[in-house]
Every structure is written in C-alpha cells, then in structure tokens.
Write a protein that binds this DNA or RNA. Structure first.
Lengths: 218, 218
DNA sequence: CGTTCAGTTGATCACGGTCAAGCCCAGTGG
DNA sequence: CCACTGGGCTTGACCGTGATCAACTGAACG
C-alpha cells in the first residue's frame, strides 16, 4: 500500500492543505473527511475543481508545481507521500502502478462528469445532477443511508456548479416545492421522487407529475 | 511502443469510431487527424467531451462499456489496441505503464481545463479560451504557425463550449470587431492582440485598449 | 446550376447574476 | 442562562446575456 512511505496529516475544518503554484513535493491520499480542490480565478472568485473523499488522491502537479489549491471542508486526515519516493516505486512496481492508473481513470471520469454537469443550462438540473453525484459517491463508500449528507456550504456548491449561492438556494427550494427532495437541518437531503429528479436532470420542460398535481406559486 | 500489439484503422470525415455503451474491447491511439468524443444527451443534443489529436488515447471504459462515442471530424488514422493485450502488458511492463500514466494525467488536466472553460460566464470569454487551447495544442505538436487551424464546425465548438452555434458565430464576429483576431476562410484564425485575448478570458469588463480606440457598432 | 447544409444576422424573451434586505442559527461573552 | 453578533442561508426586484426561432447568405457538392 501507499502507507509504507507516507506520513499522516491532520487538518481542521477550513484549513489549507496546499496552495496553487507551490512546489509539489508530496501527493496526498485522503483517509477521512472531505477536501475541496479549487483555483482562485483572479477576481477573488474561486472555482471548485472537485470535492475529494476518502481514498481519493490529490496533489497533481504540472512541471513541479501544484495546479490548484486544496482545503479541508470538514476535519480531515490524510497520508502525505513524498513524490520522490513515489516516482521511484512507479518505475519498479507494476502492481502498484496499476492501482494508480485505476485511480487516475476514476478521477478522469469524475472530471468529465463535472464538465457534463457544467454544460447543463438550467440551474435545477445542475443541482439535481450534483445531488445524484453525491449520492452515488456515498453509496459507493458503503454509507447506505436514506439521506444524502451535504458536507459543503451553498457557496461551495455554487463554486462547483458555477452558479451563485442564491441560485443554489432557489433551486433547492424549487426541488422542495416540486416534492422531489426534502431537507433536514440544511445538510441532510432525502430524495422523494427519483423519476422526477431524472426528468429534471435530462432537462425535460415540464415533468408529467408536476403537471398532474398543480403546485403553489407556479 | 503501443504499435506492437496494434492494428491500424482508417476513418473518413464524419465516420463513427465507436459508440457509447458498446462493449469496449479495444482502445485507440490517434496517429493523424482529429476526433471528437461526445455523449448524446438524450434529446438529440450532443455534448462534446473533448477533441482528440495525434498521440491521444481514446476508448476509456466503465465496467467494460465505452462511456462515450467517438467520431472522426477529419480523415483519421489510428492504432487499435485490444484491451486484453493491453492489460496483460500493464501488469508486467513498468516503463510502459509510466507512459500510460503520463497520458492519463494529461487527459485529466485537459478535462479540468474543459470544466474551467465551461465555468466562464461570457460567451466571448469561452470562445477566446477555446482558441487559446487550440493554439497551445497545435504549438505543442510542433506545428508552429502564425495561424490557428480550426478543424471543427461552429456547431461542434458550440457543443464543446456549451453555447449555441449562433452564439459562437456572434462571438467570433465580436472578436473580429475588437481587432483581437482575424479569420481567413472560416477555418484559419490569426491572433492580433494577445493581451486583449487574455483580458477577455479573465472576464475583465472593458479592455483598456478597446476603450482607447473606439469601435463601430458598440 | 440547383440542392443542401454551414454559417451569419436579426428579434424576442426567459433564466440566472447581481445587489439588497432579512432570517436563522451557532458561537461567544457577559 | 440569555443577549449579542456574525456568517450562512433565504427571498425579493431588476436587468443583461445568450437560447431560441426564423430568415437569409454563402459555399461545396454533384
């Protein structure tokens, strides 16, 4: 495993793990908690590249420098692996290589999924897809639950889905109004109507269900 | 090299290389030409995941099925590599592995770049960034030229940048009006004002240059 | 030459960004 | 224990941008 050549790091909520542009001398492997990977797009507006969960790798570099920053959004523990040691292993350990390749493929598919999300036009569609992604993430982690846990803030969701936090909020409200989800304590979401969610994601004009049972304020 | 276990394939412009959902028994390595990788998003509207140029790998799979379709947008030649043979090599050839990892990292960075592009608000900013990406792609391929070659249609650019082909067209016209680029025969673009392009990409309200020299029709 | 499809241009309108105000809740200190 | 405060979140109003529909031009093809 990676652990052999690694040290363990602990970060509290909101703490910076590494900064864009710094010399990339280690890669990280999340053990517990959630990390956001982001880029500060000049005008103090930050774009979130992805959220990272246990097992994920962060710290990819281009020409020896980190290409984005990473910050803990919950308390986080992770392995820190010196890149030097890693590279040495990469050249002589095929089994190990293979695992890295698999993780890269996974990350690649997620980046493409993200691009797919961003290419949705309607705000509710983006948010719905985001929720679905969170759910698959959590179910794949074995955390089989009725509720989806949303560890990140509305602003972070906005920075990921490329909408204002206001729009995130409004879209949540619309999903509630349409009886597609319900929210408990702002961080716990339950999906009530999976078919409805799918319809919204595929950007169908008016869902058949919402036609048959008229809703307030439309 | 990959070539040892591969056969060569030829496709004409517009031809399908593989289809989303089909059993993924080979991966491909582009030799010449340009390929688009896309997903048909239900309502006959297709989203382009990426454009692929010589040296690029396509045919990534999830659970044995291709996750997207690929189509030649120019005449294309490529290597076809049976996945079975590939996997066998992956387990026993570290040097080879390393190359695959590098290509995956590159593709990953491109996917993230794509997501970054999609998260721009203004249409001209998206198009400008797209042109910049095309340029870096072509200069890295050694094709050092004054002009950028745009092998794909306006509709394809739209499907990649997530805007209508009309908006692509209008944005091109605006860049011309602002004297940032010039276009020859619709496929050959020259960048006249690199600083101006950068300004537009970083979504600065009004570029200083365009302020100093008033433009028609603004 | 005619047909067809890519690209351009014009007009209209809905969506979401922005600014602004208010609300809710957690954390803090008296 | 309660009041205070600040930040996250929600809601409202207004307006600009680009999607959409539609008409037209131009280019490539047989």
């Amino acid at each position: 495993m990676l652990a052999v050549i690694a040290t363990v790091g602990r970060y509290k909520k909101g703490e910076l793990i590494y900064q864009e542009g710094a010399i990339a001398d280690r890669v990280f492997n999340v053990i517990t908690g959630v990390v956001k990977s982001y880029r500060s797009a000049g005008n103090r507006r930050q774009r979130i590249i992805g959220f990272l969960f246990p097992q994920d790798i962060i710290g990819l570099a281009d020409r020896g420098r980190y290409v984005n920053s990473a910050r803990a959004i919950t308390p986080v523990t992770l392995y820190r692996i010196p890149t030097a040691a890693l590279e040495a292993r990469l050249h002589r350990n095929p089994e190990f290589d293979y695992q890295v390749i698999c993780k890269l493929c996974r990350e690649l598919r997620e980046a493409q999924q993200h691009a797919f999300l961003l290419s949705k036009h309607r705000a509710v569609a983006k948010l719905s897809l985001f929720l679905q992604m969170l759910e698959t993430q959590q179910s794949s982690e074995g955390r089989l639950s009725e509720e989806i846990l949303v560890p990140m803030s509305r602003a972070d969701i906005g920075a990921y889905t490329n909408m204002s936090s206001e729009a995130v909020s409004r879209s949540f409200q619309e999903l509630i109004r349409r009886r597609v989800i319900s929210i408990r304590e702002r961080r716990h979401i339950k999906i009530l109507d999976r078919a409805g969610l799918e319809d919204i994601i595929s950007e169908i004009r008016g869902s058949s269900k919402s036609m048959s049972q008229p809703l307030p304020r439309v």
